[in-house]
């Protein structure tokens, strides 16, 4: 485990990027199908729900300040169920990353480069991610802070 230290601001900016970037591609369509022209209300309804999950994460962190989610789920649920939950979390991570990468590739191919094979575009993206991850957590935090002004300007 690499011991990087990031500030609270970096953490929040990273979260912002992750949520907006994945959300902007598919949330509007799904929500619009359900809510039609009243779509503007949906974030207000979603807000307390999001707050709740953040609150839970925060409380858990307060309880086990030095542990990762894998470690404290074992504390809470016991060794076996904790490991099962950890496995589920890892699977969730794996599938959601696959979905995100696929969405990204699909978006680029359909909108900008219709003739370019998707594996090239996805491969480029993954390479770039690998480059960033190679630098470590601190680097990703700094990167997020660095691109935040541009990003928030466009969305």
């Amino acid at each position: 485990m690499e011991k990087g230290k990031i500030s609270a601001l970096q953490m929040s900016v990273m979260m912002y990027h992750a949520i907006i970037a994945t959300g902007i591609l598919f949330i509007p369509k799904t929500v619009f199908d359900a809510a039609q022209q009243d779509i503007w209300i949906s974030p207000i309804w979603a807000f307390p729900l999001g707050l709740l999950s953040v609150y839970i994460a925060y409380k858990l962190h307060k309880l086990y300040p030095d542990d990762t989610i894998m470690q404290y789920s074992q504390h809470i649920l016991g060794a076996f169920f904790g490991k099962v939950l950890g496995l589920i979390l890892l699977l969730l991570l794996y599938t959601s990353i696959s979905v995100m990468v696929w969405q990204y590739g699909e978006f680029v191919v359909s909108e900008f480069l219709p003739h370019t094979p998707k594996y090239v575009i996805v491969g480029m993206m993954i390479l770039l991610c690998a480059f960033a991850v190679h630098g470590g957590l601190e680097v990703i935090g700094r990167l997020a802070e660095m691109v935040f002004p541009f990003f928030s300007y466009f969305f």
Binding site: F112, L113, P114, T116, V120, G123, M124, L127
Partner: peptide, 12 residues
């Protein structure tokens, strides 16, 4: 990375 780059054509 380099091979991915070199082996690409210019599709679009």
């Amino acid at each position: 990375g380099i091979f991915l780059f070199l082996l690409t054509g210019c599709w679009d």
